[in-house]
């Protein structure tokens, strides 16, 4: 089938970008979306043109490296699916697709569809962990975790850090990402001692990274390839309010 692509081309972080039109006359419906881009790139190299830079790695929907906006939707039209798992059979002959990088002040474009998501790493470095040095752990079964909590923690921990939530959010907010980490750790007994400190530190870091804030719209939830729910944001808000007004952990001492 024939697919027309309009792709954001930007030589580097400092350069101005623009949409460029490419036509692919022969796209196999069983191809994945990234395989289609591979074909385009092979073709571009053949013609001596600079191939389109895009991030990708595992191509099985778990590493979180790939992703771009497809017709204004992060990771494309199929819910619960990363771009690498999206296959061309979901498109029609003659479709025109607009591919743009994630856009947010906190995610500067590096080249074409590649953006710098190191802000996410800094959010985790600020507090998204449990401080346990190697070797100091008690037996695994010494810490009991109710199954429901373990399951809900896992739901949140499924986040792959792809950035689709930020990209899709009209406010470029990282709340879903942060909320997922806070819920993952906050639902487990191991995560309690640092719960207050964690939310305060991550919240402060998010502001330094110039992410927007949550206005409870829910576009993040709608495009999240791992179906992380908005509830994690409510949880974060609750944790923040608790830590700010009542909590002591992380507010005094050390």
């Amino acid at each position: 089938m024939r697919i027309v692509l309009h792709i954001w081309r930007q030589a580097n972080a400092a350069a101005a970008g623009r949409m460029v039109r490419y036509e692919l006359p022969n796209v196999n419906t069983h191809m994945s979306f990234l395989e289609m881009l591979d074909i385009l790139n092979e073709d571009l190299i053949g013609r001596g043109e600079d191939p389109v830079a895009f991030d990708h790695d595992c191509r099985e929907g778990i590493c979180g490296m790939c992703g771009c906006m497809v017709n204004g939707v992060a990771h494309g039209p199929l819910p619960g699916t990363t771009l690498c798992q999206l296959h061309m059979r979901h498109f029609k002959d003659g479709d025109e697709l607009y591919l743009e990088p994630w856009r947010a002040r906190a995610f500067p474009v590096v080249k074409d569809l590649v953006v710098d998501r190191s802000a996410f790493d800094r959010l985790i470095a600020a507090g998204g962990f449990i401080s346990v040095a190697t070797g100091s752990a008690p037996d695994g079964n010494a810490i009991l975790v109710p199954k429901e909590n373990a399951d809900r923690s896992m739901d949140a921990a499924a986040c792959i850090g792809c950035g689709a939530c930020v990209a899709m959010c009209p406010n470029a907010s990282a709340s879903l990402f942060m909320g997922a980490k806070l819920a993952h750790l906050g639902l487990l007994p191991q995560g309690q001692p640092e719960r207050d400190r964690r939310v305060m530190a991550m919240e402060a870091q998010a502001n330094r990274e110039l992410f927007g804030s949550c206005t409870n719209i829910g576009e993040c939830e709608a495009v999240c390839p791992k179906d992380i729910k908005l509830e994690v944001i409510a949880r974060m808000n609750r944790d923040f309010l608790h830590a700010n007004w009542i909590g002591r952990g992380g507010l005094k001492g050390d």
Binding site: Y98, E100, A104, R105, N171, L210, G212
Partner: peptide, 13 residues
């Protein structure tokens, strides 16, 4: 929030 995305999307659904 407006400042969090200085460059708008060309196409946003």
């Amino acid at each position: 929030n407006r400042e969090a995305r200085p460059l708008r999307y060309y196409k946003k659904a």
